[in-house]
Nucleic acid binder design. Sequence first.
DNA 1: GTCCTGTCATACCTGCCAGGTATCACCGAG
DNA 2: CTCGGTGATACCTGGCAGGTATGACAGGAC
Lengths: 287, 287
Amino acid sequence: MDTLETRELRYFVAVAEELHFGRAAERLGMAQPPLSRAIQQLERRLGVCLLQRNRRGVRLTGAGEVLLHEGRAALDATAAAARRTRRAGGADSPGGPRGRLVLAVKAAASHELLRKLLDAYAAEPDSAEIEVLPCGISEQEELLRDGRADVALMHTPWNSLAGFDSEALTTEGQVAVLPAGHPLAARETLSLADVRDVPDLPLARWPTQGTYAPGPGPEIHNQTQLAQLIALGRTVAVVPDSARSWLWAEHTAVPLTDAPPVVTHIAWPAHSRSLALAGLIRTAARL
Amino acid sequence: MDTLETRELRYFVAVAEELHFGRAAERLGMAQPPLSRAIQQLERRLGVCLLQRNRRGVRLTGAGEVLLHEGRAALDATAAAARRTRRAGGADSPGGPRGRLVLAVKAAASHELLRKLLDAYAAEPDSAEIEVLPCGISEQEELLRDGRADVALMHTPWNSLAGFDSEALTTEGQVAVLPAGHPLAARETLSLADVRDVPDLPLARWPTQGTYAPGPGPEIHNQTQLAQLIALGRTVAVVPDSARSWLWAEHTAVPLTDAPPVVTHIAWPAHSRSLALAGLIRTAARL
DNA sequence: GTCCTGTCATACCTGCCAGGTATCACCGAG
DNA sequence: CTCGGTGATACCTGGCAGGTATGACAGGAC
């Protein structure tokens, strides 16, 4: 009947993630019995069975899956409220810091665009201070959701824009990056099929949502590593056009005819109302 | 440092909405002093001044505005978690009710489409039960956010799809609905300028977000009322093509050449993961 | 079968804090 | 000046969150 408390959600999410009361309690910094009791109370209040306590471990019920998902979203929203409020604090003092904005960008992506955006925005009449927060591409959405960032430069098709407002800024093609001496490097253009089926050059794999797709290619952790592996003739990678800026002399980029185009968007939490953010978006749209 | 509690958010939102501790306390069913103290604690914990207590009333600071906005979103997300979990409860019992879905539709909009959608979905192999929740167009987004609904049929440009996933279903033009005898009713087509400037027929006004735009036309509360006023020759309205289904004999619909097209979307909370919902969306996309 | 181990639930206690009542301090209107 | 209306303070109390100790129960090893 009454509303869920943040504490209850935190407890349930911990248990649902660990699937183990003892470990969850440890993670929460508390003893196991009160945690068990809190979850029981939660189930009673919701009138729903959340966990299947088998003799030997715990499993989520359907309702539990729902609460895990929705509860995470609610906790994110709550954390975002706290963080954004703190960040806005003190913005009243006349002459004080105008609300700072945190911009999440995938490290080293959209170099040029980012530089132009920051310069253009700084030149605006009353621009806020922008803090650039470099992060992995899969973190951006989380940062925006839980309030650690206010706005992000995202790249479809890798990022999902679901749940955010966004505006498309630029579109670019993709290129295959090959070792300079490789036979394919002499071609004018390539197709995805061409680079997927090179026996001596397995396609590099990078993590999506923290896990690597199966495949023969090496697992890539960062750009420098990728650059080196390509230069050594051990792999080939498909990257957006703008990545040419960080290529080495031993690399050759060949345009791909059938790779999906990469669109850079500026994205922000839906219904964000902030003058500073609106100004940044306006500036970006004019680039 | 630590996380905001739902209770604190509820208290703050009440005070921020009422701008009056006494009334807020009454609304919350509690006494005023503990409420004052709770807000003070909240400010201390966040390290931020949220309210400007003038002698004689209360005003929001910038940080307070942020917390009001973000706090409402967090409370909505929390309420949604509770509601959707309750709704999913019992879905485990084999043969029990497969997760019910609540579909929010503007009353009387998209008749035909809705009927086709419900029929087609019911014919699917393992379809869930769909509860149709008729509501005003401005309520739909709120219902989706706070979990009272799982999916909605929305109409741009009236609804905002920001924050939701969505898929476009149909596009239609708009028509002007005039009293049958009116001179303009004889025309083949009209432009928006034509209907806006008819001296004897001021354009009907309906509420957007609960308030009426200023203007000479009558304020409309429901469709029947609108139909009657048009039939009486007192007003003219611009409505989507599909609204022809509820017109009277005394009405004439004339296509508008320059009205923005109305797109019907099926929309749902971003990142919703539910088999029943996925099935409904798939069915809708095939129509 | 009999341990032992790992798990979650129960019983019971305690200290903190949310919330209540009574009252104060302050200011503007008359 | 007094009065009404506001939010803040002082102080008390009951409920509940959380801790400790222990139980119930199921597997696995043998």
